[in-house]
Write a protein that binds this DNA or RNA. Structure first.
Lengths: 195, 195
DNA sequence: GTCTATATATAGATAGAC
DNA sequence: GTCTATCTATATATAGAC
């Protein structure tokens, strides 16, 4: 799978592979970001969640921004992966279908964190400011919009992305299991993106 | 219009009517919350935006939480208003149609702030913790779900709310004027909620 | 209603021992 | 890799003058 992907895009250049200790920090941070927002999460809170002191966390990351960046990077990497798989499809139409299904899968898989993170104002600014993030999001929207740039294509794509990423963490669906939610969301996507 | 609403629900009990000075604070806070998140917005930032000192802001509100509450309250009041109008309709089906259209209108009208606020983790906790908020949101979802409680109704409703509130502030639609966006979103809502 | 000044806590971040 | 201790800036919040 990774091989098929690399045949298309040269190298994703993951800023730097994370050590096990760094990965633990990022996981804890993601949970806290989802609950309190990035701006409302302190290094002390992250340290407490890990049962260590702030200094121990600073040993893994130089600044808080580096942690936020690593967290955003982790989410982006998953998106890049499915983008690569979609690009490997034979036709643009088929690529779009694969991408839509994969985005639903990603959202359901990370229903507690992914969506909240992506909607956080701080992360938004990170994504807007960094070339690498903009490129990946650009690839995604281009593929989803299917060649056009008309207002209805824009709105449809924005609605699809907002719907999927927002619905998975809505209280109304909290009691639904992953399989049910995934199936329902795929059906919704068909309705929305269909003719 | 307000009269028609009060004929249905006794009184919305707006925690306390805001003075002009308080309203200015809330407006400034809403803008900053939308840009930096509630957790990332300090009283100093709010004071700076108003061109006054922190002490002047504290003269209007006892704590930062009170400002957040007032901001959430302001958004809730708009929702209560359209809920009242919807309830005044003859049939449940007609009430639902009116509510759906009104929610789209609200989202487009406040496209720079409303959605961000409603998706902020801090506001979420406020809404979850306060009886009054839960009651209004409950009225809304009950009306939108149209009598059922099935998984597909839950997902459809969650998708609709997430789609509308999230899409209006998506970069893809930033260049669209309000009228175009509103029209497109109504069309999307029909697709989504239709048979 | 706004200011200056200040109290107190916590934020991000670093130094240096173990 | 983790700790204690500490620095500096900023956070929320208050007191009291104008």
């Amino acid at each position: 799978m990774a091989r098929a992907r690399e045949a298309v895009a040269p190298a994703p250049a993951p800023a730097a592979a994370l050590s096990a200790a760094q990965a633990r920090v990022v996981r804890a941070a993601l949970d806290l970001f989802a609950e309190h927002g990035v701006g409302g999460t302190s290094l002390q809170m992250i340290a407490d969640a890990l049962g260590v002191t702030k200094a121990a966390v600073y040993h893994q990351f130089r600044t808080k921004d580096d942690i936020v960046l690593a967290a955003a990077e982790a989410e982006l990497a998953r998106l890049e992966d499915v983008l690569g798989r979609a690009d490997a499809e034979a036709s643009p139409a088929q690529a779009r279908r694969v991408l839509v299904a994969s985005i639903v899968d990603l959202a359901v898989e990370g229903r507690r964190t992914t969506s909240v993170i992506l909607n956080d104002p701080v992360i938004r600014q990170f994504f807007a400011g960094q070339e690498r993030f903009r490129r990946v999001l650009g690839r995604m929207t281009t593929l989803l919009m299917g060649g056009t740039d008309a207002p209805d294509a824009r709105v449809t794509t924005a609605v699809f992305l907002a719907a999927v990423s927002g619905a998975v963490m809505h209280p109304l669906v909290a009691a639904l299991d992953d399989d049910t939610l995934r199936g329902q969301l795929r059906h919704m996507a068909d309705k929305l993106l269909g003719p």
